[in-house]
Amino acid sequence: MYERAADDGPLRPLWHVAGATTFFAGPLRYNAGHQHGAPVFLAGLYGDFRLRVGAQDWTTCRTAMIPAGCVHELDLGGDPLGVLYLEPDRFGVEALTPLLHGTREIAGALLGAAGETTPLRDLFEHRDGASAAGPALADLLAFAGRQPEPRIDGRIARAIRRLLAEPDATPSVGALAASVGLSASRFQHLFTDAVGVPFRRYRGWLRMRRAIGAVIDGNNFTGAAHAAGFADQAHFAHDFRRTFGAPASLSLRDIRR
């Protein structure tokens, strides 16, 4: 049962988007089947949560590492979940696996009986969690990462770093491939192999990050949709539900700033 430590009113959802990290902490109910463009670490902030990977049976865990492109469902029943995405500009899922303890593998996902839940719960309970998230997440990843050797092709890593450094740019796949010395077809093959999702899907994930960042900055959903290049709010709402398995209104409205 979720029993929040703070006692001066309900805590609103918390989002943080910066550099190679995206973070959410807040209560969730049910997220239908969805997949992400980046690997994600999930942490039940106050207890276990229910998870279904692909067509496997439902199971419970306290932490999980879901690779990019892995379809999964979540059932929290209203309890808070910490969700940390790490862009694959240098490392793959190896950079997140040290955050899980007592692991087992199911259909490509790694599920833990325990793990590094306390730092994320502390951020959720921190009234200034929005401003504290950057340093706290950097510390957490530094702990996880006595980093493994890079596992991603250096050319793909350079392309991803360019996309992260120039969030408003929308280079074509041909231009991006040429900038790292590859043909478009070879680039797309290597990208899918390294990241786990096709380039087009990953670029869609980056556009979603821009929209979430715009909401964090104070834009309404319509303004955020336009700022990120969506045709309209309905297009943004549709892609948000496809990306996260639930409506944007459940986790993006009334967030902390």
Results as ranks from 00 to 15, higher is better:
Y2M: 14
E3C: 04
R4Q: 07
A6L: 13
D7S: 12
D8V: 08
R12S: 08
P13Q: 06
L14Q: 06
A18M: 01
G19F: 05
T22C: 09
F23Y: 15
F24R: 03
A25W: 00
P27K: 06
A32W: 00
G33D: 09
H36R: 10
Y46R: 08
R50V: 02
V53H: 10
V53D: 09
V53K: 08
G54K: 05
D57T: 14
W58A: 01
I66G: 07
P67V: 14
G69M: 07
C70S: 15
H72T: 06
H72Q: 14
H72F: 15
L76Y: 02
G77A: 15
G77W: 08
G78H: 13
G78S: 14
P80M: 11
L81S: 02
Y85H: 14
F91E: 08
V93C: 14
V93T: 13
L96W: 00
L96P: 00
L99I: 01
L100W: 01
T103A: 13
T103Y: 01
R104D: 06
E105V: 10
G108A: 07
A109S: 12
L110A: 09
L111I: 03
L111K: 03
G112R: 07
A113G: 12
E116M: 11
T117D: 04
T118P: 01
E125I: 01
G129L: 01
G129S: 13
S131K: 14
G134S: 09
G134Y: 00
D139R: 02
L141W: 02
A142D: 11
R146L: 12
R146V: 13
P148F: 07
E149N: 10
R151Y: 01
R151P: 02
I152H: 04
D153C: 07
A159N: 03
I160T: 10
L163F: 04
L164T: 12
L164R: 13
E166C: 06
P167H: 08
D168Q: 13
T170L: 13
P171V: 12
V173F: 13
A177D: 05
A177G: 10
A178L: 12
A178M: 06
S179A: 15
S179Q: 07
V180A: 10
G181Q: 04
R186E: 11
Q188W: 01
Q188I: 01
H189I: 06
T192S: 12
D193A: 14
A194F: 01
V195M: 07
V195E: 05
V195R: 03
V195H: 04
G196K: 06
V197F: 06
P198M: 10
Y202K: 00
R203C: 15
G204W: 00
M208I: 12
I216H: 04
N219P: 02
A225S: 05
G229F: 07
G229I: 07
F230G: 06
A234H: 11
H235W: 04
H238K: 15
H238V: 11
F240E: 04
R241Q: 13
R242A: 15
G245S: 10
G245I: 03
G245Y: 07
P247V: 12
S249V: 04
S251Q: 04
I255W: 10
R256V: 03
R257E: 10
